[in-house]
């Protein structure tokens, strides 16, 4: 088995994680600009929960607390959770999800470097299956002021049905499905016409596409800093684009366009920050290509035909299961590659 190359020295883990956090900042800035500062509250909640959960588990397991708490890996998990959950989920949902990620998905499997599944995506899947209604309520850009957001996060009562909608991904899929039904008023309309609503921007969801651009910028910086390699983002985006292109090319009235897929949901976050997780992802160069391409195709399949709003999380977990096999099968050429 390959362990990630980053767990040798705590100091290097810390510096890598710090740069990952920095790389998330452009996306977070766009997020705050378009959707309000509620997300900052969620980031703080998740970070606190992650540190508390990590500290408790380290104490139980008798590991040195100071060393592992300051490596920032729990904070990265926490931020990815907060950024992939809707910004207005109740506080207990963020906290529960983060605790599950850190305690169950990371520490019960042996802590940093040992977890077979990406903790943030594991938590996302658990929570979306457990609370699909709460996890599907996304505000549109600029729709809610900070006070309303705080009230939704900390207030008990949620009368949000009227003020929130599904994600642009889900909304478009819903519209496409009704357009396929002969009884619907939308019958015969194409994706481009269905995307005329206020929730949509040029490529993806209004505002959401700018957040995705922020992640892209941060991700490119990570590649430039050699924190991640180009393999996973390129293979993931390429596979997602290609699989979307095939059916969209054949039947543009039934499927979303490839660019919409890239600019929506968790695609950019997944490509640069989630699938690139060195612990739960593949480690060899060919393995990374295979791993990320598989995730790209699965993301498109789940988005187009599945029951839940986004497919990145499920695709990541499914490919995580295959990582040992992928690493084993792609190991041989590594001997030749190592020398160059």
């Amino acid at each position: 088995m390959n362990n990630s190359p980053f767990v040798r020295k705590a100091a290097s883990v810390q510096s890598v994680m710090l740069q990952v956090l920095l790389a998330l900042l452009p996306g977070i800035a766009a997020y705050v600009w378009f959707f309000g500062p509620g997300i900052l509250v969620q980031l703080a909640l998740a970070s606190a929960a992650a540190l508390a959960g990590e500290a408790a588990m380290l104490a139980i397991r008798g590991k040195p607390k100071a060393l592992f708490l300051t490596d920032l890996s729990a904070i990265v998990t926490a931020w990815l959770i907060a950024l992939s959950f809707p910004p207005i989920v109740p506080w207990w949902l963020t906290v529960t999800g983060t605790l599950l990620a850190v305690v169950v998905i990371k520490q019960l499997y042996g802590g940093l470097g040992q977890n077979p599944f990406n903790p943030a995506m594991g938590a996302f899947c658990l929570m979306i299956v457990a609370y699909p209604a709460l996890m599907s309520q996304w505000p549109a850009a600029g729709q809610l002021d900070f006070a309303t957001q705080l009230q939704l996060i900390f207030g008990g009562v949620r009368e949000v049905d009227a003020i929130t909608g599904a994600t642009p991904l889900d909304a478009l899929r819903t519209a496409l499905r009704s357009a396929a039904s002969p009884d619907s008023e939308l019958h015969g309309l194409r994706a481009a016409q269905l995307m005329d609503g206020p929730a949509f921007g040029w490529l993806g969801g209004k505002g959401g596409e700018w957040v995705a651009l922020g992640y892209l910028v941060g991700g490119l910086w990570l590649i430039q800093r050699r924190i991640i390699t180009w393999h996973i983002p390129v293979a993931f985006c390429g596979a997602l684009f290609a699989s979307a292109l095939v059916l969209w090319g054949l039947r543009p009235e039934g499927f979303a366009s490839p660019l919409f897929h890239l600019a929506s949901g968790g695609a950019m976050l997944g490509a640069f920050f989630i699938l690139t997780d060195p612990v739960s992802g593949a480690t060899t160069a060919r393995g990374k290509l295979l791993f990320a391409a598989g995730a790209g195709v699965l993301t498109w399949v789940i988005r187009s035909f599945g029951a839940y709003p986004d497919g990145v999380a499920f695709a990541t977990l499914l490919m995580n299961i295959l990582v040992p096999l992928i690493d084993m099968k792609t190991q041989a050429p590594v001997f030749g590659h190592k020398k160059d």
């Binding site: 209604a133 599907s136 309520q137 949000v160 049905d161 929130t164 599904a166 009704s178």
Partner: peptide, 17 residues
């Protein structure tokens, strides 16, 4: 959503419709 009287839950319009 279709201009009628029947309420539905956000994110799950299709079932209700």
């Amino acid at each position: 959503k279709d201009g009628g009287d029947i309420a539905y839950h956000t994110g799950a319009t299709i079932s209700a419709r």
